[in-house]
């Protein structure tokens, strides 16, 4: 399963990169969303998959799944939500103020430095 997941993660990263290299701000944001999904799955896969039961002590099992990647991912999910929301509003405001979401047109004027 880890090998399948490695490929899935690779595909997620690939699509994310392609989206982020596009000109549209919205696509870039979607790209970051995909990127964080990929990163979360990567962390989870690194810890090994299905090595035991859920990390709840009440389960009385002989082995538990590694809880640390899960804790890390939980933090990461919430953070990436915050960041995505921030990006989204940034793009929204940029559009409202400047009337475009094309990053090539948001470069600022020459000599305006």
């Amino acid at each position: 399963m880890e090998i399948v997941m490695a490929i899935v993660i690779g595909v997620l990263f690939m699509s994310a990169t392609y989206l982020m290299l596009s000109k549209s701000l919205l696509r870039i944001i979607i790209g970051t969303g995909l990127l964080s999904h990929g990163a979360h799955l990567l962390i989870l896969t690194m810890g090994g998959l299905k090595r035991g039961t859920v990390p709840l002590l009440g389960e009385e099992a002989s082995a538990y799944t590694d809880p640390i990647p899960q804790a890390l991912i939980l933090t990461a999910i919430v953070i990436s939500f915050g960041v995505t929301a921030f990006f989204l509003v940034l793009a929204y405001r940029a559009f409202k103020e400047l009337g475009t979401d094309n990053t090539e047109r948001l470069r600022g004027n020459e000599g305006n430095d």
């Binding site: 490929i7 690779g10 595909v11 990263f13 690939m14 699509s15 990929g38 990567l42 896969t45 690194m46």
Partner: peptide
């Protein structure tokens, strides 16, 4: 090319890390 490169690299890393 860049995005395929990134995807492939991540896959390789994931496999090696495992």
């Amino acid at each position: 090319i860049i995005s395929i490169g990134v995807g492939a690299m991540v896959t390789l890393i994931a496999l090696s890390a495992h």
